[in-house]
Design a protein around this nucleic acid. Sequence first.
DNA 1: CTCATTATCAACCATATGGTTGAGTATACC
DNA 2: GGTATACTCAACCATATGGTTGATAATGAG
Lengths: 110, 110
Amino acid sequence: MVDNERQLDSVFRALGDPTRLRMIEQLARSDQTVSDLAAPLDMTLAGVSKHVGVLEQAGLLTREKRGRESVCALKPDALLAARDWVERYSVFWSQRLDALDQALKEDGDD
Amino acid sequence: MVDNERQLDSVFRALGDPTRLRMIEQLARSDQTVSDLAAPLDMTLAGVSKHVGVLEQAGLLTREKRGRESVCALKPDALLAARDWVERYSVFWSQRLDALDQALKEDGDD
DNA sequence: CTCATTATCAACCATATGGTTGAGTATACC
DNA sequence: GGTATACTCAACCATATGGTTGATAATGAG
């Protein structure tokens, strides 16, 4: 659990860039070669390759060499871990809000 | 919607740091002064204040001056936006997986 | 009033990050 | 074979980031 957290910030950091967010969205539709990902981006292929590297290192995707192309595919684990964390803490937080509501209501009962 | 995305990466970037993740978790339990947040952290108060600033700018918390203390409280919007995005794309992605399973199964039927 | 507490600000420093260019490797095509 | 395509790598550059120190301001306590 604590081990999970160690990699969580690298996942969030990887998502913390508009270019990479777009890539994830594109990859959600279907697998993409590096050139595919580069197409809408006005950036060098090398630059895109580095971004892919960041996402790969964060565990968000896998790269597979297929001929001279590199095919990128979204990988579930990291994104699900992020989902769990965010889910957990938004819930945590809304529970606090509920508790606050309760307290206020009971306060009003005095 | 597109407007939402503009701030999404700043939210993720704000979450992309272990120190700030811890702060969020601490704030999920209850509101905290800057000193409270600094207590477990082995870091200068100024450093903590900067981290709080990042989270504040990302819309993840609010800072309210109460006497000489600054009380930080988690703010829902940003975290919920992050939740929605992650939720959406993990679902998107798992739908793709389901589709792939289908395709494989039907392929096997040949 | 005086002094400690709480916090912010500005300046600074080292390192990380996002991007480029240029070279190099491997595959595909003619 | 030769040439174009698809990428990756290393070096480099500018800026962002995470942190510190030192000064300052404002509030709280004696």
